[in-house]
Simulated assay, not measured.
Amino acid sequence: MKTATVTELKRELKHCSQEELLELCLQLSKFKKENKELLTYKLFEESNEENFIEGIKNEVEELFSLINVKSYHYIKKSVRKILRLIKKYIRYSKKKETEVELLIHFCIQLKEMKPSYNKNISLINIYNRQIITIKKVITTLHEDLQYDYNLELTQLTK
């Protein structure tokens, strides 16, 4: 089966009735967990971005507390998993402020983690890449937000 392009799908969806669209959405939500998560965000969380961010921050803190710290191998795997989860939520939101908030929180958690990330090259690289990403995204924001986030970033890089 050849997959249709987004343009083709959009054109075809315009011809569907409201009931057909509803049925398609429900089928998509049953098919894959990510579809259900995106639909949940769009329907329930998008209107209150602050609660969405706080929920993710709490989840990230809990995941960091559950990391197996017996070896750096397990720490790296867990940190990458947490970062993948954050990136997925960032894709749902598509808001630059949310991206900066979540990545700064991730870096704070990584920095506070025991044993220190500074003793492992891979973790240092993950941390540094996120700092670079944060700096890039901050430049696209409004001047007032840039100032606030740059203050937080300077605290992180000390």
Rank of each mutant, 00 (worst) to 15 (best):
Y89I: 02
R129I: 02
Q130H: 10
N150R: 08
H73A: 13
A4G: 05
L145I: 01
S71L: 11
N48T: 07
L26H: 14
K77I: 14
K94G: 13
E97R: 03
Y147T: 11
N48K: 14
K81L: 14
V6P: 05
L22K: 11
E61T: 04
L153G: 06
Q18S: 07
E99N: 05
R84N: 15
E62M: 13
K36R: 13
K136V: 03
N68G: 10
E12V: 11
H142F: 02
D144W: 08
N128W: 05
N68D: 15
R91N: 12
K32T: 13
D148K: 09
L153T: 06
E23G: 08
K94P: 08
I67R: 06
L151S: 05
Y41F: 15
A4C: 10
I134D: 00
S29I: 12
L102G: 01
Q130W: 02
S122L: 09
C107S: 04
K94Q: 14
I124D: 00
Y92W: 15
I132V: 05
E46F: 10
T140Y: 04
L153A: 03
I67F: 06
L28R: 13
I75E: 06
F64R: 01
R129Q: 07
K87M: 15
V79Y: 04
H15W: 09
L153M: 06
R80F: 14
Y72M: 09
T154M: 15
D144V: 09
K70P: 01
L85F: 15
V60W: 01
Q18K: 14
V137G: 01
C16H: 09
F31C: 09
K96S: 08
I124T: 06
A4N: 04
K158T: 09
S122G: 02
T3A: 07
K88D: 14
E45Q: 07
N120G: 04
T157M: 13
L123I: 04
E8D: 11
S78N: 14
N128G: 02
L103D: 00
K135Q: 06
D144I: 09
S122Y: 10
I134T: 00
E19Y: 12
V100G: 00
Y41T: 11
L83A: 07
K77C: 13
L156A: 01
T133I: 03
V79S: 03
E54C: 08
K88R: 15
R129S: 06
T40G: 08
T7F: 15
R91A: 11
